[in-house]
Design a protein around this nucleic acid. Sequence first.
DNA 1: GTGACCATGTGAACGGGCGCACTAGCGTCT
DNA 2: AGACGCTAGTGCGCCCGTTCACATGGTCAC
Lengths: 214, 214
Amino acid sequence: MSDRARHIPEATVARLPVYLRSLAELVDDKITTVSSERLAEMAGVNAAKVRKDLSYLGSYGTRGVGYDVEYLLFQMSRELGLTHDWPVAIVGAGNLGSALANYGGFTQRGFPVVAMFGADRAKVGHRVHGVLVHHTDDIVERAAELGIGIGVIATPASAAQDVADKLVAAGVGSVLNFAPTVITVPDGVSLRKVDLALELQILSFYQEHREPTA
Amino acid sequence: MSDRARHIPEATVARLPVYLRSLAELVDDKITTVSSERLAEMAGVNAAKVRKDLSYLGSYGTRGVGYDVEYLLFQMSRELGLTHDWPVAIVGAGNLGSALANYGGFTQRGFPVVAMFGADRAKVGHRVHGVLVHHTDDIVERAAELGIGIGVIATPASAAQDVADKLVAAGVGSVLNFAPTVITVPDGVSLRKVDLALELQILSFYQEHREPTA
DNA sequence: GTGACCATGTGAACGGGCGCACTAGCGTCT
DNA sequence: AGACGCTAGTGCGCCCGTTCACATGGTCAC
């Protein structure tokens, strides 16, 4: 493995999926070569940033020409670990959890939902969008045996930390938290959060402080 | 209005809702005073950062004591523009849009969903979680007359930019985009995005590059 | 009233990421 | 074959945000 590429800045990592999506669009349009400028436009960023970001992956471009779309797409997929599926478990079988299970985008992009967990005994044993619901108490056992790498928390805030602890105990390496609360995980476990109300509150701030336009 | 506080860093604005939530918890627990250290722990950040962030709002703390929870909560709500409701419209009546409409967290936090828009004529005229669904073609007219300030895009990627343009034309000042694509809005309009698959792909990267632990 | 204590508020150093602008090098056209 | 044009790759300065450490100023006990 190339060693110089080690440690890609977090900001760059967060942009890679955006580039990836852009590349996928180009493939659909049968476009074989793309310049950093074009890619920048599609991804909504600066061209220099694109070139710097891509340079972390290696020298996959050709000066005077651009990047080979398919080759770059492959390299990026490999770097992002998307050449194989990542089984995902969703914890929380309420509104949000069910919606996420129903959301086809996960499986389609290589993150099949292989299990759900809920605290409500009435739902345990039933299937949501074809996925069997287990009880929250069985997270450690089941998640480990299913080889879950990524856990999605879609529980109420009050249960989130406890669920996170269980997921970590089950050997899950990455957690995506939808619960509106701060949770902590040990070093070595990745954590990202999505907070819907929080986003709206941020927008509210700017809305409130907007210059009164004439 | 205080003038020195103008221009609060974006990173700070993004943290304010987290502090707000922490303060709300403290109120529930009947705790009247809080130190930056305690607040930092609850919000999962550094204490110095808390103090600097709060100092942008004004000098609402008392040296030697801490911050008065209720007073700070009020000031922060005011700054975030949460002292009044912000009517929201959701565009996209599919899986995600319906889930968002059903998600009680919005209304509960001061963002009542007052209208939905969908491209599917079969859904137009029906109600989702009590909210009437209009046709996408009527966004400009309806959103303007309902005084919508914030628009939520929950359409497929292909329709997102067109919907965004319509929302802007209707006078919407803030857009929250759930569609997995990059959209652009004019200067003066706020834009935030939530991309579920993107978050998983980022996690996938770190999962793939994790040191193989013994 | 006075002194010790304590937490805020902030100046300043530090670090990371961003973008400009230049260089390197490939392809093409004459 | 040589020169030109185009685009990747990158060094460098800048700016924003974070963090440390200190001074400021209020509270409480005696």
